[in-house]
Design a protein around this nucleic acid. Structure first.
Length: 465
RNA sequence: GCGUCGGUGGUAGAGUGGUCAAUUACAACAGACUGUAAAUCUGUCGCCUCCGGGCUACGAAGGUUCGAAUCCUUCCCGGCGCACCA
């Protein structure tokens, strides 16, 4: 058990800040069933993230391991901070509507996360938005047609009383009803006021906040640094305070290495509010498919955890050999000594790196789609790319005889335009999958059922009605 | 607010009246090769086409001109400098 815990706090970890050693101690006790309180671990998440990829998964998988020891994971949806950070600066807040939106996003997010984390058990998982304590009654601005009513009982008779949405009472009702903390059954509602914010700010200094590398780079480059950007770390810190108030404690915050500064600010904010400061764990960043850039949606070099098993397998196979060990370390559950072994093999050039990568791909697919799917994906990959035959899950379409190939392929979304089709024809990229016979006629029509191949990875099996 | 420099295709970034669907690099796609969708080399890379050409596009809207990404006007957005306020 001790070694598991050790691996839990070292593997793939960039920095682990636990000055009092208290977190590790709690963890060890928890593992032995001797720590009755919750160990609360915070992860800040973006309110608008539809696609979770393996980069996020590094953190999620770590969290899952913490859950397995019995820790409670809190997703902190930074909807408020995202809103003020928004350069569009939509000052008006329409909480009910936005919250419905945020809730929906959070739900799809949590659904995806459910592949990794245990999200069903309230003892092990919970989530909350930070607008819950950062938004005040006066921030509300409700649409005029919004219906607000309250059951009022007088002399044992109950009636629904309607209120104008932007009246004080109307806002108060919405405010009260939209508190997530209330649903979590917390004893009191924690809310941050200007007073509270300033109190916390007394413990921060300008030099420390502007010390952040990112800020320094910008200042040196003659760029601007806005006040609200400087306050970001403080607000995130206050989130930790809020979590501690709502859930009893906030023992650890986890994030990517790029979040280290912000997470450390949380410690200061907590100390300022006389709360035991959280420990901080930052995890190594997983490189993307190109092997150099950080895996991210904007670089389009990511493997989404919702990717189909075949795509996922193929994408893993496309990573450069150099990052194989990193992927094993960060994206699989392969034991550490096993990884050392793999690194050794790669270094000695004894085993074909392709085979090692295939194992990597298989393990990664298995995490998200199961062993069975991983096996299938591998078989498909081998047959498609090594033996150059048709994959099993080829897209199928039925057309009547005489239909133009362009139309089929276009309507099936295999090419984006007729121009692209013409190009592919010119390049000799379209061929019969079995006979390898190249189709070179731009106006080729479908007369018999056949399976066609466009390039290396696009397949379509066409059947005559 | 004043001044100044900018806003170009998926991204970066040339182009400053016709030869511009727009140099180049990256990304992407295809072909060859291979150990894989790696690397490398070659090609393609707005849309439509009866393959003659047509249409749409260089922040937005107008204008000048035979002709505008390129010149003018207004507007929107961004960088930088200065000032005002505190």
């Amino acid at each position: 058990m001790e070694t598991d815990i050790e691996s839990l706090i070292t593997r793939g970890v960039g920095t682990f800040i636990d000055p009092e050693g208290s977190f590790k101690e709690k963890l060890l006790k928890k593992a032995q069933g001797e720590y009755p309180q919750d160990i609360v671990i915070k992860l800040g998440v973006d309110p608008s993230r539809p696609d979770i990829h393996l980069g996020h998964a590094v953190i999620l998988r770590k969290l899952r391991q913490f859950q397995d020891v019995g820790c409670k994971v809190i997703f902190l949806v930074g909807d408020f901070t995202a809103r003020i950070g928004d350069p569009e600066g939509k000052g008006k807040t329409r909480p009910e509507i936005e919250q419905a939106e945020v809730d929906k996003n959070a739900q799809t997010y949590i659904d995806q996360v459910g592949k990794i984390l245990r999200t069903e058990d309230p003892k092990l998982f919970s989530w909350i938005r930070n607008s819950d304590w950062f938004t005040n009654i006066t921030d509300l601005n409700l649409p005029d047609d919004y219906q607000i009513s309250l059951d009022v009982t007088v002399d044992e008779k109950t009636a629904k009383v309607k209120f104008p949405p932007n009246s004080t009472v109307g806002k108060a009702i919405v405010f009260e009803e939209s508190r997530m903390q209330k649903k979590l059954g917390t004893p009191g509602i924690y809310s941050i006021t200007l007073n509270g914010l300033l109190w916390t700010l007394r413990h921060f200094t300008f030099s420390r906040l502007s010390d952040r590398d990112m800020f320094q780079d910008r200042l040196k480059g003659g760029g601007e640094l806005y006040m609200h950007e400087m306050l970001y770390p403080v607000l995130q810190g206050i989130d930790s305070v809020a979590i501690a108030r709502i859930y009893g404690s906030c023992d650890l915050e986890i994030g990517g290495t790029d979040q280290t500064f912000n997470m450390l600010a949380g410690r200061d904010a907590m100390k300022a509010n006389k709360i035991a400061p959280q420990s901080v764990m930052s995890l190594e960043i997983l490189p993307g498919l190109d092997g150099t850039e950080k895996m991210s949606k904007s670089s389009d070099n990511y493997i989404a955890i919702t990717d189909l098993s075949g795509d996922m397998y193929g994408k893993v196979m496309s990573i450069p050999d150099a990052v194989i060990p990193q992927y094993f370390r960060l994206a699989t559950y392969t034991p550490d000594n096993e990884i050392k072994n793999i690194e050794k093999k790669l270094g000695e050039n004894k085993e074909n790196p392709r085979d090692i990568k295939m194992r990597l791909a298989r393990e990664i697919v298995a995490i998200y789609h199961g062993e069975e799917a991983a096996k299938h994906a591998e078989e498909d990959f081998v047959s498609t790319f090594r033996d150059k035959s048709v994959p099993k899950d080829t897209q199928r379409v039925k057309v009547s005889s005489g239909t133009k190939l362009v139309d089929v392929v276009l309507s099936q979304g295999l090419v984006e335009s007729k121009s692209e089709f013409a190009r592919l024809i010119r390049e000799g990229a379209i061929r019969n999958a079995e006979s390898e016979e190249v189709i070179s006629a731009p106006d080729f029509t479908i007369e018999i059922s056949q399976t066609l191949k466009i390039g290396k990875r696009r397949f379509i099996s066409i059947e005559i009605l």
